[in-house]
Structures are given as C-alpha cells and as structure tokens.
Design a protein around this nucleic acid. Structure first.
Lengths: 249, 249
DNA sequence: CATTCAATGTTGGCGCTGTCAACATGGGTG
DNA sequence: CACCCATGTTGACAGCGCCAACATTGAATG
C-alpha cells in the first residue's frame, strides 16, 4: 500500500535530470524525449523541490510546482510520496546530506597540526566554521534541515529509546564528538567532564548560526559576524580545555 | 491606504475577549452580545492565532480560521492586517513579549548572592534556564519567535545601519548582556574580552534550546536534558570567567 | 438633533493549493 | 503473445489567501 519506489540510494546530485536508472537498457531514454514513464521521477521531484527551498525556504516547497517544473502532471508525485509532508522529509534528508558534504569538504582548509590536541581543536574549529558558513550561504536548506513538525511527540515518561542512536545522522556533530574523544585521550579534557561536552559544543555552533540567520544579528557586517563566531569558539574552547593554546589560526 | 488601526499598545493578555477599547463609554458592549462592530477585533484575532501557534506551530496560523474562531467573517481581518504575513508578524511580537515575561518571572527562583560576580552569574544561569524552559514548554511560540521569512535581505555591502539598536528587543539577551557588564566591573571578566561575549552566551543558550527541540536530542529524557543544559552553562562560564566559582546552584 | 462619512464588517468570487477517485499507458514477466 | 502492475493522467473537491463591491455603524459636524 505504501508508495515510495526503489529509490536508488540517494547519490543523485542536483545535476540535470539525466539520471536513468542503472540496470535498464541504455538508449531507451534519450535526453529530451519524455516518455510516458519518466524513469527517475522521485529524484527529479526532490531536485526541483530542493531548488525551491534554496531560494524560498522550507515553505516554498509546493508539490504541484515541483511536478510542473519536472514536466509531469500535478498528481504524479503521489506515486512516490504519500503526501506533501513526505516530499518535504525527502528534501530534508537530501539537504542534510548536502550540508554534511559541504562542511566536510572544508575540513582541510587549514594545515593539520602535529600536536594531537591542537589538531583536534583545529578540526572542531574547522567544522564549526563550515557549519556557520553553510547556514549563511544556504539559509533555506539550513532552515529546512532543522525544522521539526509541531506534532512530533515529546517524550515525558517514555521508558523506551533513551539509548545510543540519537544524533548519529549529523556528521558535523559526530566529527566534533570524535575530536573531543581525542582530547580526552590526549589528556586535554578530563574524562569526568566529557559527558555532554559534545552537545555543548554543538549548541554553541548551532546557536550562533541560528542567531545570525533569524535575529537582528543578521544585520552585523562581515567583520563583526566573524568576530562573533570566533568569540564563540574562544569561549567554548577555553571552557573545555585545561592547558592548551586555543587561539585562532 | 495602509490599514492597521490605532491598536492600543499591546497590553491585552490572552484573557477572554472582554477587552473593550478604553475611552469608549461602558455598557455599550455587554459580554455575549456581538454587535456589528467587534470593538477589539485586532487583538482578538491575534489571540486566536496565538492559540493556534501554541498547538500547531507557526504554520498553523490560518487567517480564515482565526476569523471563524473570533466569530467574524473571513475577510474582516483585512481591516486590521495587510496580509496573512502581517498577522503572523503581530503574533510573533506578542509571542516574544510573552517569552520575555515568562523568562523574567523566573529570574528570582533562586536567592540572590552577596558577591556581585556570583550574583551576575546566577542571574545569567537563571535567564538561561528560563529560556530553555520556555522553548520546551512552548515550542510553537518559540519556533515562531525565531523564524525569519526567507526573503529578508541579507546585508553584504550595506553601508547603512550597522549601528547599535540591533537586538535591543530581546530582553533575555539584554539581561545576560547587562550581567556581563557587571562581571567586567567586578573584575571577573577582562574588558578586552567583553566584546561579543554576550552574543556567545546567547548563542549557547539559544543553541541548546533549538537542538532540544529540532533534533534527535529531543529524545533525551528529563535527566539527560538537564545535564546537557547544565554542561552548556558550565562550559560557557568556565570559558568566560577567570577566577570565580561557577558551579551550579 | 439630523446628516454625513470614514472605519469597520459582509458577501461573492478568483486562482492557487493538497489530495482523492477513476482512468490510461506501457514495459517486463508469465 | 497476453497480461498486469507500476507509473502517470484527468477531473474534481474543499480550503486557503486575497480582492472588489456592498452594508452597517458610531461619532463628529452643521
């Protein structure tokens, strides 16, 4: 009963729309020839919707328009998504992957450090900068990624699922968390203070990103913005570390 | 041409709908009797919309429904708001005031400290706790307050308005900023490190609030949640202060 | 006190949206 | 070769934001 076709992984980038399903005989779908069956409609729709989010934010996702942009009838999307919301969720996933990739891509902008602790700090700072940068460059995507529907259940006495998985899907958080582990191993962070330090770090980075986007702080010019971001890092690292130089690069 | 009537200040609370405009003769508007002219429609609409936001989040604001709930025709709202967006903005303002009030109300939950620095830290912690608490108790309002429309202009070479006003309207931020000033005066924070420390503090508090609402961290149980929040405070205060005991109350 | 008028509220309608039911198409499988 | 199910299409419905034209007031004005 539930739709959602095979959906080949999620590797399709924003490219064009030339992605014919692997495994089908070639030549069956020459570019420009629109057959009755599209071939990769699901991905095409997500692509179209993602582009809308980039320019208009999450509320700019309109199913009919995505269909129109893909050259398909208004209701065709319902063969691949249960509802508008389901489409949004798919776009959100894709946007998250994009953010992960873009943040990771800038991880090596600065040279590595010999000292293990310093290297871990450098990496956290790099992830943080990439995080903020993505938020400012792709506000639409960023907003979508961190948007929860209001009817998501809040746990109050939920006995189940307090366990590990939690935030495994956010690679920025994971990177910072791993770096903190290294800090512990390197003796720069007391093991007794390790708990929730990753969350605190993430909160600071995410917080400054959000504030720069959603509050009057967006009116700061570039210089002030960067100064604010660096001050966030300095405070956090100074708060975390015991005896390491945390000055910026 | 532009609507928006006199709008008596904004003091009307969520009460009922018994607020007759001050200045009109009393008795003209007995409760239950709905005259052709409502008397305080603007506030009534905002009240209705605010209630929708509380249960359904920002996207639950639907103008026609607010009118219906107020017992007025669908288009009556257009005498008080230019557009749906204008209504949303009004609700946002009211929600912000509510948050300010609720955070301030809990500012004195703990006894003041004699030492000036300690008192400042206590107050920041109290504001922070109230901030997070509000976010978790009123996720709909919180989300609305910190939601910007996608078409808000981003400054890149804007020569104007880099000046002060900025975030004057967020009383939580202002409270923390003032406390930091006291920390400087008390010699607990070097004046040279004062710049943007308020922003960093705000970022941490806002960040943990958002993460607990919009990410998998919402699945943390109450104990873990509070531990995470406290860890945020510890890291930040340790990062800010030089020689003060920052342990929780 | 009667008039008048601008503020406020109503009706009807437009184009858009998400979604459903019924129907059309065609590629892969028996 | 015939079939069939995944995929796409058409037509329709209710609800939304918004506009134009009309109705009803309370309050200021002569």
């Amino acid at each position: 009963m539930s739709p959602r076709a095979q959906a080949p992984g999620g590797g399709a980038e924003t490219g064009g729309g030339t992605g014919a399903k692997p495994g089908t005989k070639p030549g069956a779908k020459a570019p420009g020839r629109r057959a009755y069956h599209h071939g990769d409609l699901r991905n095409a729709l997500v692509d179209a919707a993602l582009e809308m989010v980039r320019t208009g934010g999450p509320e700019a996702i309109v199913l009919r328009e995505a269909a129109r942009a893909t050259g398909v009838s208004s209701t065709a999307a319902y063969r691949h998504f249960e509802s508008h919301r389901d489409l949004v969720e798919a776009v959100k996933e894709r946007a998250g992957a994009r953010m992960d990739a873009e943040v990771a891509a800038r991880l090596t902008d600065e040279p590595a450090r010999a000292d293990r602790g310093e290297e871990a700090v450098r990496r956290m700072r790099a992830v943080g900068r990439g995080y903020v940068r993505f938020a400012l460059e792709e506000p639409g995507l960023f907003r979508l990624i961190f948007r929860q529907y209001a009817d998501a259940p809040m746990p109050e006495g939920d006995p189940v699922s307090e366990a590990p998985p939690l935030t495994e899907r956010n690679s920025s958080y994971m990177s910072m968390s791993e770096a903190l582990d290294e800090l512990v191993e390197a003796g720069e962070l007391a093991a007794g203070r390790r708990a929730f330090t990753d969350v605190a770090m993430w909160a600071a980075v995410h917080g400054i990103s959000t504030l720069l986007l959603e509050t009057d702080l967006s009116r700061l010019d570039k210089r002030a913005r960067e100064a604010a971001v660096e001050r966030v890092f300095d405070v956090v690292f100074h708060g975390i570390l015991t005896n390491l130089d945390t000055s910026a690069a």
